[in-house]
Amino acid sequence: MSLIFAAAADVPFVPPLILIDIFLLSILVVVAVAIVRMRSLFGVVMLQGVYSLVSAAWFVTLDAVDVAFTEAAVGAGVSTVLMLSAMLLADRKSTPVPMRRQFGALAVVVLAGAAMLYAVGDMPAFGDVNSPANAYVGMDFMAKTAEEIKIPNVVTAVLGSYRGYDTFGEVVVIFSAGLGVLLLLGLNGNSGGWVARPNGQMLNDHSAPSAALSDSNVAEDPQAEDAQ
């Protein structure tokens, strides 16, 4: 124990941490590039889960245990399941985008990335104790929690008490998201009949634009009505 702390006090960087850093970050880069290039949506969704899981591992090395826990449960678990079930209802493959239509996106991304890289020099060094982000309010929460709330997990204390309004708003956001999904899809998957009037034209699910794309719609409709 004492050896570890003594080493940490003397050397500004712990080499094993840097090695794990490089290892996990290179996995993340490979996975992200694979997501861009992949056309099978099943692969894209699974790789997105892998990306979340690897970043959860990285959060552990950065001491953010609560965040890692949440990312592993939410990002790698639930959102992968949700994306899979949505993908089953949608498509299995994405059509390739021609090269000439990607240049605009590439230009925007390169420009934004260059601007951010230009600003990197002003960021505090990695692991700096005295950086502005680590010096004031965050560490004040630490001392205040030990005095006022007296529970060991500072993250829970800040989340529940000091930033209680924030968390309340977040619970309301989750509630609204659940409400939105239930309004869009229905709890038993039975929501759907819709009517819209764009430019004075009356549209509903029988006269939808998809009717122009496929003729099978008409044949399926009576069964769809029965199912509801």
């Binding site: 079930s85 209802l89 989750i174 509630f175 659940g178 899809l185 998957g189």
Partner: peptide
Amino acid sequence: TTVTTVMIAIFYAFGSRQ
């Protein structure tokens, strides 16, 4: 309570449409 039920609700909504 909210997170559990909303997550289950979202899964039920997607799953039932399958």
